[in-house]
Design a protein around this nucleic acid. Structure first.
Lengths: 120, 120
DNA sequence: TACTAGTATATAGTATACTTCATACTTGTA
DNA sequence: TACAAGTATGAAGTATACTATATACTAGTA
């Protein structure tokens, strides 16, 4: 598919998709048989990858972190154990973030009690 | 306490503390009785406030959001119900973030299974 | 074939959250 | 009293993640 379709189906603007591609998060390939243009074709499977990018971003990971994760995924030079290590570290980071969120949530819940009691 | 002590006890660098103060997250007051300098004094209770700032930040909230939250806390013009509304919205946002984190965690856990199966 | 819409690339600008630097004054110790 | 260390302020620089602008070419329809 072309970039406009990718944009519509992923819900990410064309400039942002280009920024991501430029950043190295994924790559489109221009059809070699078509010589009149260099329009890039984006594979169907990219949508799944982009979903992960979006979710990892809302989870608070930076583009660099996401890039590293995606690279480890498809890097044939890494052993199974190495790949699992990289992903496991990210899972631990997510667990840490969830702990932080629970803490803040508790602080805010306590705050509501204080507000009701007129303590702030 | 002076800024260097606040920095040590909060674990936040002096320039960052100054940036936060300038941003309006909190305020130090220079002792009126001391006329030779304008060193600012930071209250003991600030440490608690700064803990919240740190945690809210790791939870993914921006300084503007945190500022708004802190302001609502201490704004006497807001009614109890208005304050509760503001805090409740943040709690909902935290819950949404936790959902996202669970999704990404699941994606990564599935990924580990795929790696073990040699699927990526 | 003119024209509108789409695509590619490069460069500049924006917002957030700092960090660094320069300058100037103050405090405390040798 | 010299001087190192601390404090305040303002301005510039940095990194991240976009967003906008300019330019040029291509594709599809009237």
């Amino acid at each position: 598919m072309l970039i406009s379709e990718l944009s519509k189906r992923s819900g990410i603007s064309i400039p942002t998709l280009r920024y991501y591609e430029n950043f190295g998060l994924f790559k489109g390939y221009s059809d070699e048989s078509v010589k009149t243009n260099n329009y890039k074709d984006y594979d169907e499977s990219l949508l799944e990858k982009i979903t992960l990018i979006k979710e990892a971003k809302t989870a608070g990971f930076t583009l660099s972190e996401i890039k590293k994760l995606l690279e480890s995924w498809f890097d044939r030079r890494l052993s199974v154990e190495q790949k699992i290590d990289i992903v496991s570290i990210k899972i631990k980071e997510i667990e840490e973030k969830m702990r932080q969120l629970r803490t803040v949530k508790k602080l805010l819940a306590d705050c509501i009690i204080d507000i009701r009691n007129g303590d702030c």
